[in-house]
Amino acid sequence: MKLMFEEQLLSQPANPDSSLVQHYVRTSATCSLIGNVTTRMALLDTGTQQFPVSITEGNEPDDNCYVVSPQTAYSGYAREELKRLGRPWLTWPLKLLTRGVDCMLRTAKVDKLVQVNNWLLATNLYPTEWSLAELPAITSLLHRTFPDHGFGFRSLNDFSNRELRQCLETLGYLSIPSRQVYLFDGRAGAQAPFLKHHNTRLDATLLRRSPYKVVPGTALIEADFQRIEHLYNLLYLNKYCTLNPHYSAKWIQRGQHEGWLEVRALVSPEGRIDGALGWFTNSAEISTPIVGYDTALPQQVGLYRQLTRLCLQEAVERRKVLNFSSGAAKFKRLRGGQPQIEYSLIHVAHLSWGRRLVWTVLSRLLHGIGVPMIKKLKL
């Protein structure tokens, strides 16, 4: 079992036969392709699996993206979400709470953190063929290598990762709830339950009658990827939150070229890309880190509905589980999305008493207040 830092990987000649993980870590290390992510990258090779690893020191920019920064995830992003809550009776007390949490997290240096299997995506997928018997050795290696960092794993939910979460808790990792995601189980193929929902069937009809042509990423040129970046920004940064990852056209294009991202575009009869998505997959699951469409077009065009239907069809055809991330909760529930609380599992037992205390308080606050509120409000 070994950990290879980005300097070591870059000192070796590029090899076209390298694994997807090696390609990804090299890509992340050679140039800044995600505008608001500041981190070092490494590769963890267990002998049977390879994982990208992010390493932050806690002195990165204040707006460092939540995919590497718990400070942003549990404070900055929470403040942005409160602006959209639309419930004044909740907003003011929660604002005060998030300010207190922000100060507490900063004092505890929560961003001094190492995260395993961090693809710098909103949702990281875990290999089903991974032997969890390797976890004690991974924990020991990280403890030795990073004695002053917290370390752990993001994007765990009890539908997909219950055994992994339980093993990590047994090893002393602390459970930190993060958000509610929506899963669509396509393992039954054409018999998948979500296909029977009224809204899902309406979306299928819309896509079938649509004038748009579905074009694979292999047929796109550089200018098309620039258009896809623009569409992603319109949705995720302009409409939702500027703290979301700022994926560049180069990042999307390299993902398509190197094989860790599969792009699809909705092309109008005039040849214009009006919607696009990018899938990240493993042997059991699909996630969609890239979704974007022209938000200026009339809602009746139903671009988001068409993109959603493409995702559901892909899950059914591949007989996999679609992790459709968080957001648009009502929309996803109406199409059969099943809610699951997502967690990070963080090891802090080796840190100072004060830093451990803050992580423990955060865990209890989110389990005691955050999770019940997320479920009650169906976020």
Rank of each mutant, 00 (worst) to 15 (best):
P193H: 06
F146Y: 08
L156R: 10
V214I: 15
E163A: 12
K196G: 03
V181G: 06
H197K: 15
F194D: 03
P216W: 06
N199A: 15
L168W: 09
F184T: 12
T145R: 05
A133S: 08
Q191R: 13
L174S: 00
L206Y: 07
D158K: 14
H198P: 00
S155M: 07
D158W: 06
S210F: 07
L141I: 00
F184L: 08
L174C: 01
L156T: 04
L125I: 13
L156Y: 09
Y173R: 05
L171I: 11
R209M: 14
Y182G: 07
N199S: 13
F194W: 05
G152C: 08
R144Q: 15
A192C: 01
Q166D: 13
A204V: 08
G150L: 02
K213Q: 14
I176D: 05
R179L: 04
Q191T: 02
R201E: 09
D185F: 05
G189Y: 00
H198A: 14
R162P: 04
G172M: 05
Q180R: 12
T205N: 12
S175M: 11
R201Y: 07
D158R: 14
T218L: 14
T170M: 07
G189I: 03
L207T: 05
P216N: 02
T139C: 09
A188T: 10
N161Q: 12
T218M: 08
D203Q: 11
V215P: 00
H143V: 06
I138N: 02
V181R: 03
T145Q: 05
L195R: 10
L132P: 11
E129R: 15
N157A: 06
S131T: 11
P127L: 01
A219R: 14
R208M: 06
E163H: 01
S210W: 02
A188F: 05
